[in-house]
Design a protein around this nucleic acid. Structure first.
Length: 180
DNA sequence: TGAGCGGCTCCTTATATATCAGCTTCGG
DNA sequence: CCGAAGCTGATATATAAGGAGCCGCTCA
């Protein structure tokens, strides 16, 4: 089974924003804005809640959600806030989509990463333990990238859908049991 | 020769994973 | 006072975003 640990989604409002003024109106700690450090304005409704990064152009990113649903409800809350503040006319955006799922998985066995690099195919893997302890696996024809660790723990990232993640994990489980 | 522009890299954020170096802190 | 233990930040992965800075190229 795979568990979603992070969802990155982005969208766009059809307006140019005055981040300086918005940050002042919303106030800390919900809004944080330091244009010398980064051009985006950060919005976080509660402590440990996902982060919304808003740009001058009206585009925005939501990071740190644990599910697609959480991303969408965060987006709704964000649109309602801007609508209530009369920043936008209706609580609507031009578009909104999940861009990246970060998931963890468990293969329930210790892995010999050197052997696995050969088994999975050297052209699809990168393993330099002195640089990073995980093996990087890029399954052919798949959206995502997999990080495999000697403990059997796995990280799958780069997919735009949960289906893609599960597809990768299923074929990974199969391939690993075949080559080891 | 220099201005301008396009393309590229880096910065920042979230998040799991593991391993290293370097630093602080604590106990005997 | 020193070793051990704990903590921090780096390493790598993906992805969106805007801005800064850099490099190379073209044209006047």
């Amino acid at each position: 089974m795979v568990e979603i640990v992070n969802v990155v989604a982005s969208g766009a409002l059809n307006v140019e924003l005055d981040l300086e003024r918005l940050a002042d109106d919303i106030g800390e700690p919900v809004a944080r804005h330091d244009p010398d450090k980064y051009p985006g304005m950060y919005l976080r409704f509660e402590e440990d809640a996902p982060l919304i990064t808003v740009y001058r152009t009206g585009k925005f990113i939501i990071t740190g959600a644990d599910s697609e649903d959480e991303s969408y409800s965060l987006r709704e809350r964000f649109l309602n806030l801007f609508s209530d503040m009369d920043v936008i006319e209706e609580p609507e955006d031009e578009w909104f989509a999940v861009q990246n799922y970060v998931c963890t998985g468990e293969l329930d066995q210790n892995l010999n990463l050197n052997a696995l690099a050969i088994g999975l195919g050297l052209e699809k893997t990168e393993y330099e333990p002195e640089q990073f302890p995980g093996l990087i696996y890029r399954p052919e024809g798949a959206e995502g990238v997999v990080l495999l660790f000697a403990t059997g723990k796995v990280v799958i990232t780069g997919c735009r859908s949960v289906e893609s993640v599960e597809e990768i994990f299923a074929s990974l489980t199969e391939t690993v049991s075949e080559v080891l």
